[in-house]
Write a protein that binds this DNA or RNA. Structure first.
Lengths: 219, 219
DNA sequence: AATAATATTTAGGTAAATCTAAATAATAAT
DNA sequence: ATTATTATTTAGATTTACCTAAATATTATT
């Protein structure tokens, strides 16, 4: 199956949005891909034709097993390149997402597998996400909850689900990185903001938008 | 200046064909890019608009200084990725061209420079071609003559100008690689084939097409 | 120099991936 | 259960990078 860059981006986004949800809506996909719903409908028809997604008018989108396989290959490439950029080229974790976004579209199994080997077949990428192996097998689908949902009072940052440079820069500025341990001081119901504290630092408040994207586990 | 992948490929090919020639013809470029002359004319207008080439109807194509700068950046990326693939991922020299052809289009100066640094700022790529530095400065534009043109009787292989996998496989099979020293046994005028001999090996004959693409220097 | 051959350009068309605006379906609110 | 709102799809354009076929220039040949 030969996919265009655009088709690959759709498959990857569907895979991402499918997590948790039982199907992906046209609007959500359009927002995720920064495009218009009408364009999504067009592409949905094409991907259905190629048997990569299950799609019926107004019924939302799901990956077929084949589509999921394709998605996992793309995710594998993306996360391996992120490892490469951070470990070998000394990029910081908030810089690598956009570059990996381009590198992931070089579709060569041999290259992918050699790269993985070169990196010591890593199981997680610099953001804490698991890397699918050559067969598409992947460790547990990442951490338990978002900080937004977590009930815990003391927790550890396991991953960040949104890789926009803006968020990652914000987190870096605030001293939040992988493995950072935080205490939840207060949750404000009126705007869902959360006051948190990192050891040896003054407490500060983060918005719902931010807390939704910080993945944590209780400690 | 933001170039599409297609525009970059045109610029790169013009740069390649310009070497020696004083301008590049529509047909030559079409052949090089495996496209049609009409498409080249279309693109020539666009690249002229962007001031990357000098072009007047029926007059052939030349890079402007700006176009040449762009070309050297692309060539730099291409050759650095080739180094990476051969040195770090253990690809053989005949495998890397196609992959580098894709990787070269990731346009990030920071990535390029970090990659170069990671590789120890190499000055030549695995095919023997010099790698432009970050400023576009490049070592002497490679070897003197093709085997086809060379008058010398004993010579050394400095580079291969055509990177098609077919040719590179052929050369590998015959034991011809960078640095290989050969003796010219005979030149057959009727088809321009050449009988050559590598030390400790039986002599064999290569076609004009092959000899045109082997770059040598006399020793 | 006239003609033949070749090279190049123009005109008009196609496919992929997008878009806007309008139409229609599904969902939420009264 | 209507109506209003929101989501989705359709219809028709647009842009990029191609294409073919025909027209026109240039170059080579007699």
């Amino acid at each position: 199956m030969n996919l265009s860059v655009s088709e690959e981006n759709y498959i990857k986004s569907i895979y991402k949005l499918e997590e948790g949800q039982d199907s992906v809506t046209t609007n959500a996909l359009a927002y995720e891909l920064d495009t218009k719903p009408a364009s999504v409908t067009d592409m949905a028809k094409k991907l259905k034709e190629k048997k990569l997604i299950a799609y019926e008018k107004y019924q939302g989108i799901n990956l077929t097993p084949e589509g999921k396989k394709a998605a996992l290959q793309i995710v594998r490439r993306h996360r391996l390149w992120e490892c490469f950029l951070v470990e070998k080229l000394a990029f910081s974790w908030e810089e690598v997402h956009e570059l990996a976004e381009e590198l992931e579209h070089v579709r060569s199994e041999k290259l992918t597998n050699r790269l993985s080997e070169f990196l010591g077949n890593p199981a997680i990428d610099p953001h804490g996400d698991p890397i699918p192996d050559a067969q598409g097998k992947m460790g547990k689908p990442r951490t338990q909850t978002s900080l937004h949902k977590s009930q815990a009072k003391r927790l550890e940052v396991m991953a960040v689900s949104d890789k926009s440079a803006a968020l990652l820069e914000f987190l870096t500025a605030k001293g939040i990185r992988l493995g950072t341990q935080l205490d939840v001081i207060e949750r404000y119901a009126f705007d869902n903001s959360i006051e948190i504290k990192i050891r040896n630092q003054p407490a500060f408040t983060i918005s719902e938008q931010v807390s939704k994207n910080i993945m944590v586990k209780a400690i």
